[in-house]
């Protein structure tokens, strides 16, 4: 699998750059949606009340669906351009969406660190979803204008779903923040746990910079202002303080993950690793 880092940019032949950046960019979107979808699905059957169990499961389903669209497109780009993409157990056939989800290892996953963090309590899960949906909404809003028509189409499709996720998670942040003493305390704790991962959302990786320059991807640095505005407004209504600590944790976009991702993949990928190429 080819990684583009700043220092390597000069060494890569110019015509290969767009395809590789597109692949890495699309994988980043796919992995982030998949991992958060997987995390949310851990609540299925364990939600605090039935309606919310269904809600978080629905959000999981939307996210995994969005991930599938991105993986399918990545596979198409890889196959069409005959990009050498090394995956175990895949020989003499085209790469599929499943291969990309089930056969890549931790270092190859490009998801945000925020989404791989353990669910914690309901408050933490809600706050993470709110931080993420507020970001994803702004991202899709821009991605709809991508020069890559498939990325634009996926964004156009997905933003309608994200609108629901954002509305739902905002309402819950307010309800819990401005709820009982205990729920307020838990939200403070959630802020403490997750704020540090929010900086990465707006810190572009090399492939995001290339994708943005080619106008196929979004310049994530431009999303920060509107995101802060939304977060500030909701936290204020929730009677929660806006954290002032720096949010410095990053690395997920380029494969440097916390120890948690390995456990997720071990569970998620077990079947395809143990029984390669098995089918339903």
């Amino acid at each position: 699998m080819i990684e583009i880092s700043n220092s390597e940019l000069q060494d890569v032949p110019v015509q290969k750059l767009p395809v590789e950046a597109l692949i890495n960019y699309t994988l980043n979107l796919a992995d982030t949606s998949l991992i958060l979808g997987h995390r949310n699905s851990e609540w299925t059957g364990h939600g605090p009340v039935l309606e919310q169990d269904i809600a978080i499961s629905n959000i999981a389903l939307d996210l995994i669906g969005q991930a599938r669209n991105f993986y399918q497109y990545t596979a198409e780009v890889i196959n069409k351009n005959q990009v050498a993409f090394d995956l175990p157990y895949v020989t003499g056939r085209a790469i599929t969406e499943d291969d990309l989800a089930y056969l890549r290892d931790v270092l190859e996953f490009k998801n945000l660190l925020l989404v791989e963090q353990p669910n914690g309590d309901w408050g933490q899960t809600i706050l993470r979803q709110f931080f993420f949906s507020a970001y994803q909404y702004l991202l899709y809003e821009q991605l709809q204008k991508s020069k890559d028509s498939q990325l634009a189409a996926i964004a156009e499709k997905s933003i309608k779903e994200t609108t629901y996720h954002l509305r739902w998670s905002s309402e819950w942040v307010i309800r819990l923040g401005d709820g009982t003493e205990e729920s307020h305390q838990r939200m403070l704790n959630a802020l403490q746990e997750f704020w540090m991962f929010t900086g990465e959302l707006f810190k572009p990786s090399a492939y995001e910079q290339v994708a943005a320059a080619m106008q196929i991807g979004v310049d994530v640095t431009t999303l920060k202002g509107a995101w802060m505005e939304k977060v500030t407004a909701v936290l204020e209504e929730a009677k929660l303080p806006l954290p002032t600590t720096p949010a410095l944790q990053s690395g997920g976009k380029t494969g440097t993950h916390s120890e948690h991702l390995g456990f997720i993949l071990a569970e998620m990928q077990f079947l395809q690793r143990a029984y390669p190429n098995s089918n339903w």
Partner: peptide, 13 residues
């Protein structure tokens, strides 16, 4: 409205 999310993605309760 009881819940914005229902038994399938397309429904609310």
């Amino acid at each position: 409205l009881l819940s914005e999310f229902g038994s399938t993605s397309c429904k609310a309760l």
